[in-house]
Computed example of a mutant assay.
Amino acid sequence: MTADLARAQWRKSSRSGAGNDCVELLVHTTGAAIRDSKNADHGSLVLGAAPWRGFLGAVKDDRLAH
């Protein structure tokens, strides 16, 4: 997946504000990648499919610390 990131179509939340302070997301069959929209060239957090599913489950179940 890492080799595909340079050519990828990243998504930014439709809820991002006018200042564009948001994260961008790339979902792939092998997992997902997340990056800062303001600093896209600073790298990204890449998660495999299982950790990505675990993260989504934790968000949906409100198991993350606030």
Rank of each mutant, 00 (worst) to 15 (best):
A32M: 10
K12F: 05
R7E: 00
G17F: 00
T2N: 10
A58R: 14
I34W: 07
E24P: 07
A58H: 06
R15K: 12
G43A: 05
G17S: 09
R7C: 01
R53G: 01
S16V: 11
A58Q: 09
L47K: 01
S14Y: 11
S14W: 11
V59P: 13
D21W: 00
H28T: 15
A58T: 05
E24T: 13
G43M: 06
S16G: 13
V23H: 07
H28W: 11
H42K: 08
D21L: 07
A33W: 10
K38D: 06
D62Y: 00
A33G: 06
K60A: 03
L47E: 06
R63A: 09
C22E: 01
W10K: 01
R63G: 03
A50R: 09
A18L: 08
P51L: 13
L64V: 08
N20R: 08
S37V: 10
W10M: 06
L56K: 14
D36L: 13
D4S: 09
V59I: 14
D61E: 00
V59N: 03
L47P: 03
C22H: 02
H28S: 11
A50W: 02
N39V: 13
I34N: 07
G19H: 06
T30F: 08
A58Y: 01
D41E: 09
A33Q: 05
V46A: 01
A32Y: 10
F55S: 08
S13M: 12
L64C: 05
L25H: 04
S16W: 04
A33H: 07
A6S: 15
C22T: 11
V23M: 06
Q9R: 10
A49C: 03
W52F: 02
D41Y: 01
T30M: 11
A50Y: 05
H66D: 03
S14C: 14
I34G: 04
R53Q: 09
D4L: 14
V27Q: 09
A58K: 08
D36N: 06
A8S: 04
V59C: 13
N20P: 12
A32F: 12
L47R: 05
F55A: 02
L5N: 10
G19I: 04
Q9L: 15
R35Q: 04
S44K: 08
D62R: 15
R53A: 14
M1Q: 13
S14A: 10
A33E: 03
H66S: 12
A3N: 12
G31T: 08
D36G: 03
G43D: 04
D62V: 11
